[in-house]
Write a protein that binds this DNA or RNA. Structure first.
Length: 452
DNA sequence: ATGTAC
C-alpha cells in the first residue's frame, strides 16, 4: 500500500527528525486501507498514526483509536463580529481576556462552571451533540448549520463508554484544557479571495475569535480504554498491528463497533464543549463592551473537527476516514456542504501557533486525492521537551505584540511559535498543489491559554 | 492531548 506526503523542500527536511514517516508506512499496512495513506504538510510524530495523517478504510477493514488520537474531536471554531480591530487597544484586550478567563475554566483538570446544568443534560449531549446544549440555552438553533456534521455524529452510545470516562466528562463540559488549546481574539490581516471572504462574512480589519479545544478528559479516557481493548481484539482476530498506537479491530466486530459508539460520544461532547465556550466568550464581550452579542455582529462562521473517524463517500465507495490532525475540506458544490456554504465550499480552519497567523481556506475538486482533507495547523517542529528549553528572550521576541494571559512564559514555552513549523510554508504546499484556496489570514491580538 | 506513569 502507498503513502503520499505533501511537503516542499524545507518541510521535507523535518520529516527525518522524527518517526512520522515510519508511522505513516506502518498505518498503510492495516487491513482494508484504501491507498494512499496521506501525510499532510504539517505532519509530525504521534501515537500510532502521525499527527497530520489521513487513513481511509473500506467497509471490511479496521477501525483504530490511535488513528483518531487521544483528543477525540479536537477542533476549531471561528466566530466573526462586525467589530473593527482599530478600536481594540491593549487595555481593552487585557480586560477581554481576563473576562473570558472568568467564564471559561482553563488548564488541565479544571471543572466546568456550568456543571450544575451539564451534569443534567450530559446524556442528551453525548447522544445528540450541540442540539442538546442549544436546547439548554447555549446559543441559537441556526448555529447547528455552521458545525461539521451539524454538531452531532450519529451512532453515539454512552453504554460503550466506561464509568470513569463518564465521570470525567460530566464535570468538564465547558472547559478549555491545556497544551495547544486556546481562545484567541484575532484581526483579519488580509483577504486572499474576495468572493469567498464575502461569502464567509469576513473583511479586512475585522475582529474574529478562534476557539481551539476538544473532548478533554472524556475523550482522553475513551482513547485510553479502547487502545487497550482494540489491542487485545487485534490479537483475538489475528490482525497484525505494527505498534500499540495503531491497535485496531474489524469495523464490524463487537470491539470495533463499541469504539465507534464511544468515539461518536466524544465527538459530540467536543462540539458541545466549543458551543458552550462560544457562549461564554460572547458573554465576556457583552460584559466588557456593554453591548449585546447581536449588536456586535457575533456569528459562528464554522466549526471543524481535526481528530475524528467518520463514514464518507469517496469515489462512489463508503469509507471510514480517519483524520488525525487533518481537516475535512469539501469543495464548492459538494452535496455534503451545509446549505449556507453549498456554492463556496465550507470554510476549513487552520490555526497557526500563538503569535503567528491563522488561515481559513476551502478545498477544491482536486482535494479528492486527499479524501477532501487539508492540513490542520502549523504542525509541531520541536518536541515539548526540547521546546521547554526556549529562553525567555527568544519566547518574548517570537510573541511580538501579542497579549497573553499566562503569567510565566515557562508554562507555555512549549507552545511558542518557535516550537512550530512556519504556517505560511505549510499552507502554501496545498495551495500550490491546487488542493486549497486560501481565503483569509488572521493575526492574533490576544491569546487565552490553559496553564496555571 | 491528559486528574501529565504500570
Amino acid at each position: 500500500m502507498d503513502a503520499v506526503i505533501y511537503v516542499n523542500d524545507t518541510l521535507k527536511e523535518l520529516l527525518y527528525e522524527d518517526q512520522s514517516l515510519k508511522q505513516l508506512v506502518n498505518a498503510a499496512s492495516l487491513p482494508g486501507v484504501v491507498e494512499p495513506v496521506i501525510g499532510m504538510p504539517d505532519i509530525h510524530e504521534g501515537f500510532g498514526l502521525p499527527i497530520g495523517g489521513v487513513m481511509a478504510i473500506e467497509e471490511k477493514g479496521v477501525i483504530s483509536a490511535g488513528a483518531v488520537g487521544y483528543d477525540i474531536n479536537c477542533g476549531v471554531r471561528l466566530l466573526r463580529t462586525s467589530l473593527e480591530a482599530a478600536y481594540f487597544n491593549k487595555e481593552l484586550l487585557y480586560k477581554l481576556i481576563e473576562r473570558i478567563e472568568y467564564y471559561v475554566p482553563t488548564g488541565i483538570g479544571k471543572k466546568g462552571k456550568h456543571k450544575g446544568i451539564t451534569r443534567v443534560i450530559f446524556d442528551d449531549v453525548v447522544h445528540r451533540g450541540v442540539e442538546a446544549v442549544i436546547k439548554a440555552g447555549f446559543g441559537k438553533k441556526s448555529d447547528l448549520e455552521y458545525i461539521e456534521e451539524n454538531g452531532g455524529l450519529s451512532g453515539a452510545d454512552l453504554s460503550a463508554v466506561s464509568k470513569e470516562a463518564q465521570e470525567r466528562g460530566e464535570e468538564q463540559l465547558g472547559t478549555l484544557g491545556g497544551g495547544n488549546h486556546f481562545i484567541e481574539i484575532q484581526r483579519v490581516d488580509s483577504i486572499l479571495d474576495e468572493k469567498l471572504a464575502r461569502q464567509f462574512g469576513l473583511f479586512k480589519g475585522q475582529i474574529v475569535v478562534m476557539i481551539h479545544t476538544g473532548s478533554r478528559g472524556f475523550g482522553h479516557q475513551i482513547a485510553t480504554d479502547y487502545t487497550k481493548i482494540l489491542w487485545e481484539a487485534a490479537k483475538k482476530y489475528g490482525i497484525e498491528v505494527p505498534e500499540k498506537g495503531l491497535a485496531a479491530a474489524p469495523i464490524d466486530s463487537k470491539e470495533g463497533k463499541a469504539y465507534y459508539k464511544a468515539m461518536a460520544a466524544a465527538v459530540n461532547f467536543a462540539f458541545s464543549n466549543r458551543q458552550i465556550i462560544m457562549f461564554d466568550v460572547m458573554k465576556a464581550f457583552e460584559d466588557i463592551l456593554k453591548k449585546s452579542s447581536e449588536s456586535m455582529g457575533f456569528q459562528l462562521v464554522y466549526d471543524v473537527a481535526h481528530n475524528i473517524a467518520k463514514w464518507e463517500i469517496h469515489g462512489g465507495r463508503r469509507l471510514l476516514v480517519h483524520r488525525k490532525g487533518a481537516t475535512r475540506a469539501l469543495p464548492a458544490g459538494h452535496p455534503q456542504n451545509p446549505s449556507f456554504y453549498k456554492e463556496s465550499g465550507h470554510p476549513a480552519l487552520i490555526p497557526g501557533s500563538m503569535g503567528t497567523g491563522s488561515y481559513v481556506v476551502v478545498g477544491t475538486e482536486k482535494a479528492a486525492e486527499t479524501f477532501y482533507s487539508v492540513n490542520h495547523g502549523a504542525g509541531r517542529r520541536l518536541s515539548r521537551n526540547k521546546a521547554k528549553k526556549i529562553s525567555k528572550e527568544e519566547f518574548e521576541k517570537a510573541m511580538g505584540d501579542v497579549i497573553y494571559n499566562v503569567r510565566s512564559y515557562k508554562d507555555i514555552a512549549d507552545e511558542s511559535p518557535l516550537a512550530y513549523k512556519d504556517v505560511e510554508e505549510v499552507v502554501s504546499v496545498l495551495e500550490k498543489r491546487e488542493i486549497t484556496i486560501p481565503v483569509a489570514r488572521f493575526v492574533p491580538l490576544a491569546v487565552v491559554k490553559g496553564a496555571d
